[in-house]
C-alpha cells in the first residue's frame, strides 16, 4: 500500500520503543514472565483484593466505596478500588490477571472471556426492589413520527451511540438484522457518541429520524417515543478464577445475594446513605449462561470486539 513508505519509520520507532521499554524495565531479565501458573494468584498480594469498575449504566454515578468497605470487613483484606472510564483498559487488566474482583458491562464480560480472561460472574446489581438485573435498549422516534415499528427504520437516518455501546449499537444492530435491515447499509447510521445526544438528536428529528438509546436517558426526554425495547443483561460482578477456592466461595457467598440493608446490618455504616442507596439495592446471582444472549448477538452481528 502507498502508505508503507511513510509509515515504516514509525513502525521502526514503535519497535524501538518496545525494545527500549523492555530494556529499561528488565535490568535482570525476567524469564519467569509466565509466573504464577501454578496455584492461586492475586493481582497484588494475598492481603489485597483489587476491585476494578467501569461504570456501565450511563446514569450511574458510581460510588461503590461502601461495597468495598463491606468486602474488606467480610474478608479481612485490604480492598483497592479502581474506577476506569475505558472498557478496553479493564478488559486488558482482567486478561493480564491484574484484577481480583470487577464490575463491568455484560458485553465487556463476554469480550474479556473471549480474550482469555479467567473470570467468573457471581451476581449483578439492582438499584430498586423487585427489579430484574439489566436495563433496556430502546428504539425511539420523534413524537408524532409516522415510524411505528423497527421495520420502519429501513432507509432512515438512525442515531446510534457508538460502535462499542451495548445498548446503543449491538442490541439495536441485532434487532435490525432480525427485521432484515443491515445496520450498516440498510439505514444511514449516525454515531452520536453518547446516549443523551442520541436522544436529543432523535428528538429534533433533523439529523436522525429514529434512534436507539438506554432507557434511563430516554425517560428524561419528552420529545421522543419508544416503539420497541430489548432487555440488556445486567453488569456482572466477577471474580478472578486464580483466587484460592475458599476465597472465591466466600466472595460468592457475601456478594451473591445481598441487600443494602444486610450490608448496613453487617456493620458498614457508610452504606446507609442516599448516595449509595441510589446506586445499589441488592445483588442477584447470575451465571455464565445468563450472557448467552450476548454471545448470540455477537454471532449474528459479527461485531469485531466479540472475536477473541
Amino acid at each position: 500500500m502507498k502508505l508503507s513508505t511513510k509509515t515504516w519509520p514509525a513502525l521502526a520507532a514503535a519497535a524501538m520503543l518496545a525494545v527500549g521499554l523492555a530494556a529499561c524495565a528488565s535490568p535482570s531479565t525476567a524469564d519467569d514472565s509466565a509466573a504464577g501458573d501454578s496455584g492461586a494468584k492475586f493481582a497484588v498480594d494475598e492481603n489485597t483484593l483489587v476491585f476494578g469498575v467501569v461504570p456501565d449504566s450511563v446514569d450511574t454515578e458510581t460510588n461503590y466505596q461502601p461495597l468495598m468497605d463491606y468486602i474488606a470487613a467480610e474478608t479481612g483484606k485490604t480492598v483497592e478500588y479502581h474506577e476506569s472510564t475505558d472498557y478496553a483498559a479493564l478488559i486488558e487488566a482482567a486478561v493480564a490477571g491484574k484484577i481480583d474482583v470487577a464490575s463491568f458491562s455484560g458485553f465487556t464480560y463476554v469480550t474479556a472471556t473471549n480474550n482469555g480472561a479467567a473470570i467468573t460472574p457471581i451476581s449483578s446489581i439492582i438499584t430498586e426492589e423487585g427489579q430484574e438485573p439489566g436495563y433496556y435498549s430502546q428504539a425511539i422516534v420523534p413524537k408524532g413520527s409516522d415510524i411505528t415499528d423497527l421495520a420502519g427504520f429501513a432507509g432512515k437516518k438512525v442515531c446510534f451511540v457508538d460502535p462499542s455501546s451495548t445498548s446503543g449499537y449491538l442490541f439495536p444492530s441485532y434487532n435490525l438484522l432480525n427485521e432484515g435491515i443491515d445496520p450498516k447499509t440498510g439505514v444511514t447510521p449516525v454515531f452520536a457518541g453518547k446516549h443523551d445526544v442520541s436522544v436529543t438528536k432523535t428528538g429534533e428529528g433533523v439529523e436522525c429520524e429514529a434512534g436507539f438509546a438506554e432507557d434511563s436517558e430516554v425517560a428524561k426526554s419528552d420529545k421522543v417515543e419508544v416503539i420497541a425495547e430489548t432487555m440488556v443483561p445486567g453488569a456482572p460482578i466477577v471474580v478472578s478464577d486464580t483466587l484460592p477456592e475458599e476465597l472465591k466461595t466466600q466472595l460468592t457467598e457475601i456478594l451473591g445475594e445481598v441487600t443494602v440493608d444486610e450490608i448496613v446490618e453487617s456493620g458498614v455504616e457508610s452504606a446507609d446513605s442516599d448516595a449509595f442507596r441510589s446506586v445499589f439495592f441488592a445483588t442477584l446471582p447470575v451465571d455464565d449462561e445468563y450472557y448467552d444472549t450476548i454471545r448470540d448477538i455477537c454471532e449474528k452481528t459479527e461485531a469485531e470486539q466479540c472475536q477473541g
Partner: peptide, 24 residues
C-alpha cells in the same frame, strides 16, 4: 526518541502500563 514518545497513542500507553503495573 522525543517524536516517538509524542506519537504513541494514550490508550496503548495506558493499556501497556496497566498490564504491567495494574490499575491505579
Amino acid at each position: 526518541l522525543l517524536v516517538v514518545i509524542r506519537g504513541i497513542p494514550e490508550v496503548i500507553l495506558a493499556i501497556v502500563l496497566i498490564v504491567i503495573t495494574g490499575l491505579g
